[in-house]
Design a protein around this nucleic acid. Structure first.
Length: 499
RNA sequence: GACCCGGUAGCUCAGUGGUAGAGCAUCUGACUUUUAAUCAGAGGGCCGCGGGUUCAAUCCCCGCCCGGGUCACCA
């Protein structure tokens, strides 16, 4: 019998023995007076003498994380997930049945404890158990107490184990919860209405990405999991909802990396009468406020870097960034005009060793140069603004410069955290952009945007001047929790099927 | 998809072309204020899977599976 089988058999036999004693081994509820965290909060500051004077009584519960046994006396460490407390067990302080129960406990079991609080000789806050209640069995051995669980594969596949033994992991997901709450509070506080739009869409639009495909049986209709909520949210702005946001799960059928999970969370919002300049100022406030509310500061450490999220953030035009990087790499002056000319831009890309595809336009090449040379250098928060029209089919052009749109991306820690633009609201121009995308698609670009006639019709009813933005919640949480991989901030990241 | 690294006891990790190792965990015994408890003993292994080389493979070679990283693609 393997060690695991042996340990499971032992735990099963302890469970059977409890049942034989007449213990309900799967009780339905337990009424506790305090959580473990309550006790620690309330009594951690009390001295030995204060506790002896007060003799506070409690009924609490948790999972056993350690057992130190001395024959007729023992110490347990129990946890409610938030805090730990010690339980002191003595044979002469417990009813005989409860001591029998104690002897059949294993590490990982859930128990309820009644008793009074005191401090041991070593000054540890402890519950002196007068009653023990069995709540549920842990049939499998837990990871080791000292090194814990470090195998990332098990941490992702069996997140519950990670959460039981790695306090840091729990802290990350608590922070994530606070980030989402803070984002919601920030938006609703500014008069935005939280809405929910379809995750299953007949046309997957709003971003340049490959969708997941599914099928509705009764309607016999192909459907796509959304790649973005964008087009639906703007339909709502057409409908007069002037400020809307959605905390949305979106899905993109693409590679997995430290910064990409096939399903990910964005906060996308639209504000009528605003343009991208307004959103830059709002985004600074959002990021700084959310940081302060979720981790208590807007000064963060990320890997080897320290970043300040205090507004204002740096601003850098995309072409200037690409131009400066290309100039310094090549040791010769590169002009704005060079980047706007397809032949010059393609030549630059070749000289810089940046991969581009045959027939790619100047705008796409400029972006490729930016991504290759600049992106991972942008550690401190930086708005990169003014993108080529070619790569932005839903954004509004700059006055007098049809090759450029009013769009920005926010970079922090070397990756993109937000993407925003003044929304294209001219239906005729939108149709032309979609048609360009169809040409892209015909060239074999599977990520090109699809035609969406209903969206154009919505624009024909009139979209007020509007700016919109998507903020990557997972990536924001990575920054605020100093997590190097997006999988560390997603409870159940997608993993290949096992067995 | 390409390349690099990894997979050995429940967990964390050593290790060697010749019968497989430690700590924690588990079991037995001692112990009524310990806290990585201690002490004495014991059990626990398809060394990821499948081929090959070899008298002999956990180790060398090839393929595959799973994971991590880098790149590519994307957000």
């Amino acid at each position: 019998m393997s060690s695991q089988d042996e340990q499971v058999a032992q735990r099963r036999s302890n469970l059977d023995a409890l049942a034989t004693l007449g213990v309900d081994v799967y009780p339905h509820a337990f009424e506790r007076r305090h959580t473990v965290a309550d006790l620690v909060d309330a009594y951690n500051a009390r001295t030995h003498d204060e506790l002896e004077a007060e003799r506070p009584e409690t009924v609490t519960s948790g999972r056993i994380l350690a057992i130190r046994s001395f024959g007729k006396a023992s110490f347990l460490a129990i946890s409610d997930g938030r805090a730990r407390i010690q339980v002191y067990i003595r044979q002469d302080s417990l009813p005989p049945l409860d001591f029998q129960i104690f002897k059949l406990l294993d590490i990982g079991d859930w128990i309820g404890v009644e008793g009074r609080l005191f401090r041991t000789k070593t000054n540890e806050l402890t519950v002196w158990a007068s009653r023990l209640h069995f709540l549920a069995k842990c049939l499998l051995p837990l990871p080791e107490k000292w090194h814990g669980l470090t195998d990332v594969e098990i941490r992702y596949r069996q997140r519950y184990l990670d959460l039981i033994v790695n306090a840091e992991s729990r802290r990350v997901f608590e922070t994530r919860g606070r980030v989402v709450s803070a984002v919601r509070e920030f938006m609703t506080g500014r008069g935005y209405l939280e809405v929910e739009t379809p995750m299953m869409q007949p046309i997957a639009g709003g971003a340049l990405a490959r969708p997941f495909v599914t099928h509705h049986n009764a309607l016999d209709m192909p459907l796509y999991l959304r790649i973005a909520p964008e087009l639906y949210l703007k339909r709502l702005t057409v409908g007069g909802l002037e400020r809307v946001f959605e905390i949305n799960r979106s899905f993109r059928n693409e590679g997995i990396s430290t910064q990409h999970n096939p399903e990910f969370t964005m906060m996308e919002f639209y504000e009528a009468y605003a343009d991208y300049q307004v959103l830059m100022r709002m985004t600074e406030e959002l990021v700084a406020t959310v940081a302060r509310q979720s981790i208590g500061t807007d000064q963060i450490a990320f890997g080897d870097h320290r970043m300040s999220l205090t507004p204002p953030f740096a601003r850098l035009s995309l072409r200037d960034a690409a131009r400066a990087a290309a100039s310094s790499t090549l040791g010769r002056a590169v002009s704005d005009g060079d980047l706007r000319n397809q032949e010059c831009a393609a030549g630059l890309a070749r000289a810089l060793g940046v991969d581009i595809e045959q027939g790619e336009g100047a705008g796409k090449i400029t972006c490729a140069i930016f991504e290759a040379l600049c992106e991972d250098q942008l550690i401190q928060p930086t708005f990169v603004y003014d993108f080529p029209t070619e790569v932005s089919p839903l954004s509004k052009q700059k006055p007098g410069d049809p090759d450029t749109v009013e769009r920005f991306e926010l970079y922090i820690g070397g990756f993109e955290v937000a993407n925003a633009f003044s929304e294209l609201n001219d239906p005729a121009e939108q149709r032309r952009r979609f048609e360009d995308q169809l040409k892209e698609r015909a060239r074999g670009n599977v990520e090109a945007h699809a035609m969406d006639e209903d969206y154009i019709r919505a624009l024909e009813y009139g979209l007020p001047p509007t700016a919109g933005e998507g903020v990557g919640i997972d990536r924001l949480v990575m920054l605020l929790t100093n997590s190097p991989s997006i999988r560390d901030v997603i409870l159940f990241p997608l993993m290949r099927k096992r067995e």
